[in-house]
Amino acid sequence: MLIIGEKLSIIAKRVREAMMSRDKGPIQEIARKQYEAGAGMIDANIGPAEDGGEELMEWMVTTIQEAVPLPVCLDTTNYAAIEAGLKVHNNDHGIAMINSTSNDPERFPMLELAAKYNCLIIGLTVGKGGLPADEEERAAIAAEIMARAMEYGVPLENLYLDPLVLQIATTQDQAIKVIRAVEMFQQLNDPPMKTVVGLSNISNGCPKHIRPILNKYYFLMLERVGLTAAIADPVEMKEAMEEKELFEKVLQGQEIDDKEKMRVMKKTIDVIMGNTLYAHSYLEM
């Protein structure tokens, strides 16, 4: 499982300020922490970056790779910024990843870059109109993205299909559909297609204290159906992997010694599977 550290995102205030003032300290510190927790790649989310995106992405890539021996996942809708980042990317630390293309024609040029620089690319299974309704719609879009990738000369092993994780607090029924989509995506090719998720979106809008719980157990449910990569908090994912065996037991309906943990796991599984209706206090019921 490849964990792509999510923490260097412009959405976080501290990161945004460091980006704007080109202060390497916080960026490198966060990169290092994620590396130590087991991240295999670092996501650099600079937002739409319409002004000065190229220079910012260059700076992010070099700043991160100065601190950690990892490849970078270049996360922006700005085509020129992606290319600028790819140009300075140090491939001795691994192959870079583009985040992302989709079935929206405006995003097709990203595939050109993936072919030109022979790097990895995320294919978000959304089209131009609206969010996918279920796993079938996601798989249909995935097939179109695969065809497009081949057309642009991107090898399918470089394409990571992303089913788009949605918020459990508002679209609970999508949680299980995303798990099914990850299963279906793999069957679209032989060898199986690679898959990736933006994991933490599952718990977006949920109370702070339950976010890690939802993130971890949702991750384990995706992991067991063959997910290849997750953009996530590496510290949380490390904890998740430590709980993997216990979680599997609970999922199989077996007892574990830690009754409180078992209760939390069971309730979270029920919410993810749609067996009980989500509410912010679902763990307290």
Binding site: Q172, L277, S281
Partner: peptide
């Protein structure tokens, strides 16, 4: 008009 918030309110009341 939000089923999850509706449930949440009922939980808070029973709590």
């Amino acid at each position: 008009l939000d089923i999850n918030l509706s449930k949440q309110l009922n939980i808070l009341l029973t709590q």
